[in-house]
Design a protein around this nucleic acid. Structure first.
Lengths: 204, 204
DNA sequence: TCTGCAATGTGACACCGTGTCACAACTGAG
DNA sequence: CTCAGTTGTGACACGGTGTCACATTGCAGA
């Protein structure tokens, strides 16, 4: 989390920092990004940077979290639109992600995120970061799911279903960049996997 | 891949390097590891290191690949033992992984691998690295699978099933370190997920 | 045994990035 | 106008990387 000093800055300056950061994190993944480039691009002295952020990771995860929150809100609203249908929601979300990632403004940034998707990145994207909101938000989301269509017996199993779906979804987004799939191919593969998940991998 | 020079070294010296590398990569994840520590521990000059390896990544992935190959051979032999039962094989492999990771010699190394599991790590562990062997090995493995128990219609779907199972397996191994589960808890969770995958997430 | 080329060993060095710290500038309450 | 608290600033110490000129070794052929 950025330091208080950062939040005392004018919205303008905050935005400038974010833009500069995104530019650098679009160029290279986190561990190759340099503070030097960010400050040059934002036009602030080095010392100031460290007044605002602990380090580049602090800024990176703040940025990633902002984008994740947007996605998360979208996920919830789609879930409501689809009357709690989890599969439909995941598919719609995946499609939306394809669009977002196609967009030049975000493309390279997400490429660097997904190709270096480690636990902390995934946790951030799964909106698991700032613990206060985490649990309540999770329970609110869970409540929206229509479990009557799901093959689960208790909340425990529902939790695992979510884990599986998120895992598979992330995996497919990673593949999008690794294999340089077209949107159509990526979606096709994802749909096959979702279908397999729905109907079960084992023959009855 | 290490340079030829490395392979010209005596087995002893090779082993010393490997031990030193593993020590450093157990201490910290790849991007925090330093060549300085490896050479100090191995007792070789800096210049020599760069005679043997392109950089520390080269050494890291070589090491990881060695371990992955061991796992892979094990996977295949278990698959044969279990007469091609994919689920049984994955479960047995997961259990074996739990044992291996419990072992102090490997524990921290794998912790650093899994908590920073990015695409390249996963690809290496999935034994996807050196392209020549990759495809033939994949097809040989596939042939061993008893598809009569699986809810798949073609090889394409089988491929996706493998993707899903590997993804879920990796995810659970990561959780082992993130949540610091006991072996029993980790296995319990994994079994719940495998069971869900088998029977399908959607109610009939 | 000697010669000379190719392969390997070596560590000082140039370069680059990080995070800090002493000091400067600003701000606002009294 | 003052002064304490906050923020701005950039030079700097530190540590890590990969290279390169030179030293050493190994070995084939005379």
């Amino acid at each position: 989390m950025p330091k208080q000093t950062y939040f005392h800055l004018s919205k303008d300056k905050q935005e400038t920092l974010i833009v500069a950061a995104k530019k650098e994190f679009s160029r290279v993944p986190l561990h190759e990004a340099s503070v030097a480039n960010i400050i040059k691009s934002a036009g602030i002295p080095r010392g100031s940077f460290y007044q605002y952020f602990e380090d580049k990771e602090d800024l990176f995860y703040y940025l990633l979290n902002q984008l994740a929150e947007k996605s998360n809100r979208r996920f919830i609203s789609v879930l409501m639109d689809k009357n709690g249908d989890l599969f439909e929601t995941f598919i719609a979300t995946f499609q939306f992600m394809l669009e977002v990632h196609r967009d030049q403004e975000h493309k390279n940034f997400f490429k660097n995120v997904y190709l270096n998707m480690n636990y902390k990145h995934e946790k951030t994207l799964a909106n698991d970061v700032y613990e206060e909101t985490q649990k309540t938000q999770y329970f609110n989301t869970i409540k929206l799911i229509d479990t009557s269509k799901l093959n689960v017996h208790d909340e425990q199993e529902l939790h695992h279903v979510l884990k599986i779906l998120m895992g598979v979804t992330f995996q497919n987004l990673v593949q999008l960049f690794v294999k340089e799939y077209s949107d159509e191919e990526a979606l096709k593969n994802y749909l096959v996997q979702i279908d397999l998940l729905k109907r079960g991998l084992q023959k009855n």
